[in-house]
């Protein structure tokens, strides 16, 4: 059989996160998503999202669901891993909205990083100046912990990635749903930053709210990397599903629908090429794991 198989020329770089002894890997595949029959599949990571201060902007049903832990990021992170089986914690720095001192925010991140054995992603507001001011402080405070920091944008990659480089972290490179711009940012990063520490975030939408565009962008990024051996795009892809799924009308009306919406969106994007998906409800994580892993 081997003789008849055509091998793809490209493969996705393996991303290592977390400190020695509790490190984990994402990516690393030399074939397309779920093509187990013809190559080495990638390692998927299902992350649960938490916030570093009260998640006031989350839908009410989720705030109620996490009522016991939502004011303690450390407890929330532990519960997400121990009880809900998260393979990664995705920490949204919503405290940045209150303009807390960067040192205080970074200390909170450090406590969460110390509390769990799974890799930790730390995500700013997506505002270029605020993120460029806070994320480097987080990077320094958590030096050597191999966090996944983001987002880095065309406008602030130099500041944030330089700090990530110095302190041994990986970064999430975000571009607005455009394969050409995703490539552009990776080329710019690649001039001083190792591409095996980059995760591409091409942005996503929930099912029914433009998912087709997100799917097509991810699919083309992955095809370029694997089938056309485009070395600038051979990075794992992250799909931040939780936020998109839980702001839909359907999820806000009904928790059961929200779980289905989140799981369905995540599965769809895993098919398109996502390697890391972020979710907000453990039941959707369970469903995705049953289907995909």
């Amino acid at each position: 059989m081997e003789k008849f198989m055509e091998k793809y020329p490209g493969e996705i770089r393996e991303l290592r996160l977390g400190t020695e002894g509790k490190s984990a890997v994402a990516g690393g595949q030399n074939t397309l998503p779920f093509h187990f029959f013809e190559g080495r599949p990638g390692q998927l990571k299902l992350a649960l999202e938490i916030t570093d201060s009260e998640p006031y902007d989350w839908t009410l049903s989720l705030q109620e669901f996490y009522a016991n832990v939502k004011s303690s990021p450390v407890d929330w992170a532990r519960k997400s891993v121990d009880e809900y089986g998260a393979e990664m914690i995705f920490l949204n720095l919503n405290s940045m909205e209150k303009d807390l001192p960067a040192g205080e925010i970074a200390a909170g991140v450090k406590r969460v990083a110390a509390a769990v054995d799974v890799p930790l992603a730390v995500f700013g507001l997506g505002e270029k100046e605020k993120d460029a001011a806070v994320l480097p402080v987080v990077a320094a405070a958590c030096s050597g912990r191999k966090l996944l920091l983001g987002p880095v944008l065309k406008e602030n990659y130099q500041e944030i990635a330089a700090a990530a480089l110095e302190h041994g972290h990986a970064v999430i490179a975000q571009s607005p749903m455009d394969i050409n711009l995703a490539k552009d940012l990776n080329i710019r990063l690649g001039k001083f930053f190792p591409l095996d520490r980059v995760v591409i975030d091409p942005l996503t939408c929930a099912a029914g709210y433009g998912l087709e565009y997100a799917f097509s962008t991810m699919e083309r990024i992955r095809l370029s990397a694997i089938a056309h051996d485009d070395k600038t795009l051979q990075s794992p892809i992250i799909a931040r599903v939780g936020k998109e799924a839980w702001k839909t009308k359907e999820a806000m009306q009904d928790t059961g629908k929200g779980i289905l919406w989140e799981a369905l969106t995540a599965i769809t994007l895993l098919l398109a090429g996502a390697d890391i998906v972020t979710l907000r409800h453990p039941d959707s994580l369970r469903r995705v794991r049953e289907m995909a892993c």
């Binding site: 711009l181 490539k183 552009d184 710019r188 056309h228």
Partner: peptide
């Protein structure tokens, strides 16, 4: 042959 990006000349 190569995917376009705005920095295609810098590769």
């Amino acid at each position: 042959y190569d995917l376009y990006s705005p920095s295609w000349l810098e590769l």
